[in-house]
Design a binder for these strands. Structure first.
Lengths: 245, 245
DNA sequence: CATGGATTTTGACATATATCAAACCGGTTA
DNA sequence: TAACCGGTTTGATATATGTCAAAATCCATG
């Protein structure tokens, strides 16, 4: 085990090492030595920018790397054979995407920038090599993958058993929480995605999303005007979730 | 790289080593030496039996191990705060469950035996230790987790954009394929779960599941009587999926 | 600042699925 | 065999969300 002292020191250094690529997800909870840090640092030299609408990867692309979002945000969407597509997630600063591609060596969905964004490329081979050397990194990688599974199961629950307004409330509260975790306002933010994209993610048509927004506004729960949202009554939004029927 | 010769030898030995616990998922694609085999073999000594209705683990349980299903089948279900529960998957022989627990060190869903079943317990610490030593095992573990993510995204697609009969068709075809992969009939099988459980998994009420079954039967696509199912027209079932509207 | 295209909102109406209720069935127990 | 019980099927009706269409608004660009 690493002592507390050691850990806090290495966490400090970690921040420095990751400063060229703020790997919140990947870095924060790990306690590494300075030498280890050095190697971690080599992992993700490549930072690349993407303009709104650019593809980070497309379905079918050969899998090489995971991507840590450094700034901006993305959506991932799965494509069905019959042409249907569905948004499977919205990712923002500090989150890792590309995990779906490991199992087939090819990406099974596509990732599109919702705004101008930067990502760090994490070559998966290197990541595996390093994580064989550093148990804490190994465990952390496993946790990231597991968290993605849990997240997906939460969405399955949402899609399988919630009504439109519950889904939207869950969506807004999740955004709120994620903004808060990044030091941004939990109650006032700009949506980076269209009604259509929200609907696709929540299993609803855009008109239903729009109506639900309007209802929330009429009931004093939120202020919404196009893509700018203000959450006025978080407790009520919370309590709205789970009111079946 | 391991030569083909080597790989086929080690795969042979692998079968022997895993004979006390048929780890289809975990073992098959790995090429290991005899010594490595020995260590793998030590991994999963514990095989335990569960009767229909028994819990393999419950939500909140401390995470210790993954479980490889050796015989029988299970359902996993997530519990919502408000008491709602939703089936998130049905697992059968050779599949691994428990991946959701890695990220929080506690199980976030529960696993219940659908019939009398046996599982091999895979202590996760040991699995991590071994996978640091054996890159092929490491990669395989990553693939298993990634496959779970892809599977979940498939269900999100189903829940988010398919109509009742499409969902049921996908469900039946998936079962069919999995039975086939295990050397069982892809067209004739017994369901191990109730209409209620199928409905929960597919985001439908049991009556809707029942009606969809009946419609399929009326259209000559299947024969169904209670829990025994015969798929009569696989092509039509396939083509049914993706007919939006 | 004006224009035009995309996005969003709102309305009227259609429909798939949920809900409620009753009948049916198969297996188990008395 | 009869009675019973959980699970399943089927029917009648209600409702949430989808569909189609028009109006309103936003935003980028000239």
């Amino acid at each position: 085990m690493v002592s507390n002292m050691q850990r806090s020191v290495s966490n400090f250094r970690l921040k420095a090492a990751c400063s060229n690529c703020n790997l919140r997800e990947l870095c924060l909870p790990i306690g590494l030595s300075i030498d280890e840090m050095q190697q971690m640092d080599d992992l993700s030299r490549l930072k690349r920018g993407y303009a709104r609408g650019d593809y980070l990867y497309r379905s079918g692309d050969k899998f090489q790397s995971l991507y840590a979002i450094h700034s901006g945000s993305f959506k991932t969407q799965a494509l069905h054979e019959d042409g249907r597509e569905q948004v499977t997630g919205f990712q923002m600063h500090g989150e890792i995407i590309g995990l779906d591609a490991i199992c087939t060596d090819h990406h099974t969905c596509e990732a599109v920038a919702l705004e101008n964004s930067e990502v760090c490329e994490l070559p998966f081979n290197k990541l595996e090599t390093l994580s064989r050397k550093f148990p804490s990194l190994q465990r952390h990688l496993h946790k990231i993958m597991s968290r993605e599974i849990v997240r997906d199961q939460g969405i399955m629950l949402l899609l399988g058993s919630m009504r439109a307004e519950e889904r939207l409330a869950v969506f807004l509260l999740s955004l709120s929480q994620r903004f808060a975790a990044r030091g941004l306002s939990p109650t006032q933010f700009q949506l980076r995605m269209s009604r259509q994209e929200i609907g696709s993610y929540l299993g609803l048509k855009l008109e239903t999303v729009s109506r639900s927004f309007s209802n929330f506004q009429d009931n004093g729960l939120i202020n919404v005007k196009a893509r700018s949202v203000e959450l006025l009554d978080l407790p009520s939004l919370h309590s709205l979730v789970g009111k079946q029927l």
